[in-house]
Amino acid sequence: MSAGVALLLLAIFGPLGLALLSRGEGWAARVATPLLFGAMVLAAWQIVCVGFGVPSILLPAPSQIVVAFGTHLSTLGVDFVQTVLRAVLPGWAIGSAAGLLAALLLDRSAFLRRGVLPLGSLVSAMPVVGIAPIMVMWFGFDWQSKAAVVVVMTFFPMLVNALAGLESTGAMERDLMRSYGARDWQTMLKLRLPNALPFVFTALKLNSTLALIGGIVAEFFGTPIVGMGFRISTEVARMNLDVVWAEIVMAALVGSLSFAALALIERAVTFWHPSFRE
């Protein structure tokens, strides 16, 4: 009963607070409003779970998830090392680097580029995670096969973006280099690569999310008994939803933090791009 009242109060005063807060100008109000909204969602979730006795095999309360995060910290750590450090990170780095390298090579030949580019966008539209079982067959159950999935997933977005970036150089800028009698490598180094950087960062950011998805989903197809995807799929089957949620919270943290880190580096490196100018 009291849970119902609490929920009712939240439903009345929450939106009211949001409406008041969102009227404010300045960054404080801009940050506070979404935070308040997030807090409200969490509060409602907690009240519903505890107050109405929702079984934790359906939906554990936020407090239970926090507790699970604490008690399973060592498991989470092991899973993090297995999935993120062993599979996702190397796969992301190798796939992105290979994509960039391939773009630089393809850049030399307009013919090949016209052939590969449609192929690249084709692959980008495909459900690439589906290759996970094949990679497991080729590279075994351990992290190598997951890294391979991540490499394939991240290769094409980088290739397509980097090529677009290399092509995006303006005609006037290229004529300028030509008027200096600049060699190809000079034009590449001083004009086309810096000009392509924003595109490369777009791909790196996109790839960071893709890589994490690839690493986790690939583990649904079988792993040694460790890893975030493995934990999620087995603990779901054993109805330990609080552990599953803890893993999901960790995945969300890893995803948003690595994206934020990349965004910060991007800002520092491509400060001159119109989207960052003040």
């Binding site: 939906l59 999310t209 995807g229 948003s256």
Partner: peptide
């Protein structure tokens, strides 16, 4: 969009 949402798929299905 920066979060691997797909990770919750198994849970949603089971729940």
């Amino acid at each position: 969009q920066t979060v691997p949402i797909l990770a919750i798929a198994p849970m949603v299905v089971v729940v």
